[in-house]
Simulated scan of single mutants.
Amino acid sequence: HNTVSMFIGTIPMGLATIINGCLAFGIARFGNGIVPVAHGLWWIDVAMSLACGVLIPYLMFTRHEHSLDGMTAVWLLPVVAAEVAGASGGLLAPHLTDPHAQIVTLATSYVLWAYSVPVAFGILAILILRMALHKLPHESMAASSWLALGPIGTGALGMLVLGADAPAILAAHGLAGVGSVAQGIGVVAGLCLWGFGLWWLALATLITIRYWRAGVPFNLGWWGYTFPLGVYTVATFRLGATLNLGFFGMVGTVLTIALAAMWLLVGAKTLAGAWRGNLFVSPCIATPN
């Protein structure tokens, strides 16, 4: 039940991916008529993210059984959904034609960022303590060390995107000064979070090397390597474009190559395991009584 509750938090993130796809590809295919659809889906995503962000921790506090040595970065999944929705709101706001809808979307996105990122960082602090006291999680959770890069990368990307939207949207409501401040805060916060993500990226890489040297068997949890690295890569490119620094473009290219290699590896192992029939196993059926 603990694991199921945690992964329910990934459902809003899947919806955010659909919303982003509507904006990135749907406008060119269907025109601006797709924007109201994306807007409606975004508000559904907001409601789901807010609910997951507080109800699942509430269940953890009142009904689930947990221990510090059993903690992993999976604890982050319910609370990260809100900042993912916030970053999507930053992508959506410039496409809205109603100035009131723009500022409401922008303000809501900032609230979603604050609803998620501080909580995620609190969990990360406990996670560092857990690993110091109880060492690394079981090999079946090898990929969980990368999940922490998700809220860090999404937090950086959200600040950069929202900061870029703020000047024009807030200026239309007589808040040009606030918009300039928001833009500056977005750049500084994005850069600082990127630096924190760099530390976690290096740590996760070392942890992964240790696991793989020990011959960790493949499981579906390996897909956890992809999303965090992907969003951190996007934040890297966005930071390079914002600061006009080629360094971030080079780092982003290296991360993209690593991400593509990981997708190919995990995808190939998933297909092979599905073909052999040893990947999807129900323990309650496989083990009598």
Rank of each mutant, 00 (worst) to 15 (best):
Pro151Ser: 07
Ala166Glu: 04
Ala168Thr: 14
Leu133Asp: 02
Asp165Thr: 11
Ser140Asn: 12
Pro137Thr: 07
Glu139His: 10
Ile152His: 08
Ala143Arg: 06
Ala142Cys: 02
Leu133Cys: 03
Ser140Asp: 12
Ile169Val: 14
Pro137Asn: 03
Ile169Gln: 11
Pro137Tyr: 00
Leu160Phe: 02
Ala148Arg: 09
Arg130Lys: 12
Ala143Leu: 01
Met131Tyr: 11
Pro167Asp: 10
Ala143Phe: 00
Gly158Gln: 09
Ala168Val: 13
Leu129Gly: 03
Gly150Met: 04
Leu133Asn: 07
Leu162Met: 05
Ile152Cys: 13
Ala148Gln: 15
Ser140Ala: 14
Ser144Arg: 09
Gly153His: 03
Lys135Arg: 15
Ile152Val: 15
Ala143Glu: 01
Val161Gly: 07
Met159Ala: 12
Ser144Tyr: 09
Ala168His: 11
Leu147His: 10
Ala132Asn: 15
Ile152Phe: 05
Ala168Lys: 10
Ser144Thr: 15
Met159Lys: 05
Leu170Thr: 10
Ala148Cys: 07
His134Asp: 03
Met159Gly: 15
Leu149Glu: 04
Val161Arg: 11
Ile152Gly: 08
Leu133Met: 08
Leu147Lys: 11
Met159His: 14
Leu157Met: 02
Ala142Asn: 02
Pro151Asn: 07
Ile152Trp: 05
Pro167His: 10
Leu160Asp: 02
Lys135Met: 06
Leu160Val: 03
Lys135His: 15
Leu149His: 07
Leu157Val: 01
Arg130Phe: 10
Pro151Thr: 11
Val161Trp: 04
Ala132Trp: 06
Ile152Asp: 02
Leu162Glu: 09
Gly163Gln: 01
Lys135Trp: 04
Gly150Ser: 05
Ala142Lys: 01
Leu133Pro: 02
Ile152Glu: 07
Leu136His: 06
Met159Thr: 14
Leu170Glu: 11
Trp146Ile: 02
Ser140His: 12
Trp146Phe: 08
Ser140Gly: 13
Gly158Thr: 13
Ala156His: 09
Glu139Gln: 07
Leu157Gly: 04
Met159Gln: 11
Ile169Phe: 10
Leu170Pro: 09
Leu162His: 03
Leu157Phe: 02
Ala156Ser: 14
Ala164Phe: 08
Ser145Gln: 13
Asp165Asn: 15
Ser145Phe: 07
Glu139Arg: 08
Ser144Ile: 13
Trp146Gly: 00
Thr154Met: 15
Met141His: 14
Pro167Ile: 09
Ala132His: 14
Met131Pro: 02
Leu133Gln: 09
Leu136Arg: 13
His134Tyr: 15
His134Lys: 13
Val161Pro: 04
Met131Cys: 04
Ile152Pro: 06
Leu133Ser: 04
Trp146Leu: 05
Ala156Trp: 03
Met131Val: 06
Pro151Asp: 05
Lys135Tyr: 09
Leu133Lys: 04
Leu147Gln: 12
His138Phe: 06
Met131Ile: 10
Leu149Val: 10
Ala142Pro: 00
Asp165Ile: 05
Leu170Asp: 08
Ala156Phe: 04
His138Leu: 12
